[in-house]
């Protein structure tokens, strides 16, 4: 099975022949029709396409948040087995960071505590190390002074920046972002997007961003266009990689 997949250490995320159906019976929809994709470390790739073409479904499958009906997914050299939730959970914890359209911060916890949450699950760092790292990530996204604030005491852009800090907490190899600026104004959108791409390149992370915004897509290394469950075209913007 895995001979069809790459063992190239520069590849952070790869999928082959990814299939996904949604619904049942007569209302069943073939959302993904055999998608092939490869993301290298440090590469920022945008997926664009009309609503319902399968962008978000692809993203959730690649993030092991959902189960594919066919095909293979390999993250940092490890193939994700079908039907093994425990393995998927472990792989997510170690290798994958998410940023969603909504920040999805836990409202009862401060910004700092929200950033600590993934580290606490990974269980590698001591309490002090986790706190220090969370603080430095919040410094990096420009929120060092507001680390003790609850999400409700932050603006929309600030909340999304905390979510980015949280996604980077465990130094994942892959960062998946679903419309990360979809809920923000233009100024904040550019700021968040630039932050995302900057930290990804600095940390050598593969970043896959689903976006409807063509201007933001132009800031990525590659743009993949999806239509009707397939990647129909690819545009390279940065030849450095």
């Amino acid at each position: 099975m895995s001979e069809v997949l790459s063992h190239d250490p520069t590849v952070a995320l790869e999928c082959r022949g990814l299939e996904k159906y949604l619904g049942e019976g007569a209302s069943q929809v073939h959302v993904l029709r055999g998608v092939d994709l490869q993301l290298k470390r440090g590469e920022v790739v945008a997926i664009v396409g009309p609503s319902g073409c399968g962008k978000s479904t692809l993203l959730y499958l690649l993030g092991l948040l959902d189960r594919q009906d066919g095909g293979h997914i390999i993250v940092s050299g490890e193939e994700a087995p079908l039907d093994q939730d425990g393995v998927h959970t472990r792989m997510r914890c170690r290798n994958i960071g998410f940023v969603f359209q909504f920040h999805f911060l836990l409202p009862e916890f401060s910004a700092l505590e929200n950033v600590i949450l993934p580290m606490r699950k990974l269980g590698v760092l001591s309490a002090k190390e986790m706190k220090d790292r969370a603080q430095s990530l919040l410094d990096e996204v420009g929120l060092g002074e507001k680390s003790m604030r609850l999400p409700s005491q932050l603006s929309g852009g600030e909340q999304q920046r905390v979510a980015i800090a949280r996604s980077l907490a465990n130094k994942p190899h892959v960062l998946l972002a679903d419309e990360p600026t979809g809920n923000l104004d233009i100024k904040n959108s550019i700021r968040i997007f630039d932050l995302l791409t900057k930290v990804a390149r600095e940390n050598d992370q593969a970043t896959l961003v689903v976006t409807h915004n063509p201007d933001l897509a132009q800031r990525c290394d590659r743009i993949l266009k999806m239509e009707d469950g397939l990647i129909v075209s690819e545009e390279r913007l940065n030849d450095a990689r």
């Binding site: 993030g63 959970t89 997510r92 914890c93 998410f98 999805f104 949450l117 699950k121 990974l122 465990n170």
Partner: peptide, 16 residues
């Protein structure tokens, strides 16, 4: 449900 889903996305297991 959202918070649960987010915790799961971070790597928290079903048992957690």
């Amino acid at each position: 449900t959202r918070e649960i889903a987010i915790l799961r996305s971070m790597g928290y297991t079903r048992q957690d």
